[in-house]
Design a protein around this nucleic acid. Structure first.
Lengths: 193, 193
DNA sequence: TAGCCTAGAGAACGACCGTTCTCGGCACTA
DNA sequence: TAGTGCCGAGAACGGTCGTTCTCTAGGCTA
């Protein structure tokens, strides 16, 4: 009955689900594996989350928030609009270097469930649109065109995919260099940022 | 017993598997659905392919070949190295516009099975490495640096992912424009190609 | 025509999954 | 102390999957 204990268990379950889903894939992790790893009874699990799909949705929702926070933290380190944009790719580089990096959760989930679970495909779409919108804001600060935001978003997506598949983090560096080139070429002749 | 009839059935099964796996996901398509759609008995199916995994591998292998042919056909339309590179993104645009486009088979499959089936993860890696190598050849013709090939590959991957998730084909145009900018900026000062 | 090999249809098997149900024990109340 | 409600452990249920097995009918050879 204590609401805060329930909340702690929720957090625990969500953390375990996030880790297992990310490392093994969603379909490969059953509710029983989750129960075992989180040390929760199956009954409680289904009290907290009415179905596996709702649990997956919440995991994705939290990943979306975490991603926004990472982006904002990176952006905050830059002093010029150009530096703020490039800081996003530096953040990617650090992420790719983590031991358990296995690509973008949203891209992986889309490949796994996008065709059969429209609700989840929508969440993925929403997340990517949100990131693109944030890039567009940053581009607007430079006075650059909206198309540049699309191009930088494509670079970020491609870097994540390439790094995940190749298993190396060098894609981040290439994406960063390409982003710098695109920004400079597009903004050439404008006031220095 | 007639070997050519077996071969025809193989082709039929592979075509059906390719279509269903691509549109619904691999795990969502059972051997029985395949049998029904291809009009083959389960027994014959297992005579032709010893397991589902071997069937998946062959589907991926054929997709890899089809991809190479599409790339080569696109490349063949360009008269300069620059045009040959950009033709790849025009090919992507046409692909994204197809009704049943649902992203890159390899990226989707990696998200679905990459974590649990190393053999398939390797096939995906190999395919992407092959594409990057081909881009590197085309870049070498321009005298450009190898890093440019990486950048163009990242753009292509990002365009496929973005188009699949957003459900629009505009990513191809943005990727093409970005590729042109990168090529021109990188090769500025060299002999016009 | 009699015997044999083959192939197709589909049942069967064992495993696993998401979800629900049962049971036994514990804490708390009157 | 007797009763009551809650919770965890895990069995159970219905379904699906990959794979194999059984049975039957039909075509071939002698």
């Amino acid at each position: 009955m204590p609401a805060q204990a329930d909340e702690a268990i929720r957090e625990k379950v969500l953390a375990v689900a996030d880790r297992l889903y990310y490392s093994r894939g969603i379909q490969a992790v059953g509710m029983d594996a989750l129960r075992a790893e989180a040390g929760v009874s199956l009954k409680r699990l289904y009290q907290l989350f009415p179905s596996k799909e709702s649990l997956v949705e919440e995991v994705l929702h939290r990943r979306c928030q975490m991603w926004s926070e990472l982006v904002e933290a990176a952006v905050a380190t830059g002093e010029t609009p150009r530096a703020r944009l490039l800081a996003v790719y530096d953040m990617l580089a650090r992420w790719f270097d983590e031991d358990d990096f296995r690509g973008c959760v949203f891209i992986n989930t889309f490949g796994e469930l996008g065709a059969s679970t429209p609700r989840i495909a929508d969440l993925v779409r929403e997340h990517k649109a949100q990131f693109q919108a944030r890039l567009a804001e940053l581009i607007a600060e430079t006075g650059g065109p909206a198309s540049l935001a699309f191009q930088l978003a494509i670079l970020a997506e491609g870097a994540q995919t390439t790094a995940a598949i190749a298993g190396t983090s060098e894609a981040a560096g290439h994406a960063r260099a390409a982003a710098a080139t695109l920004i400079d070429a597009t903004l050439a002749g404008k006031a220095a940022n």
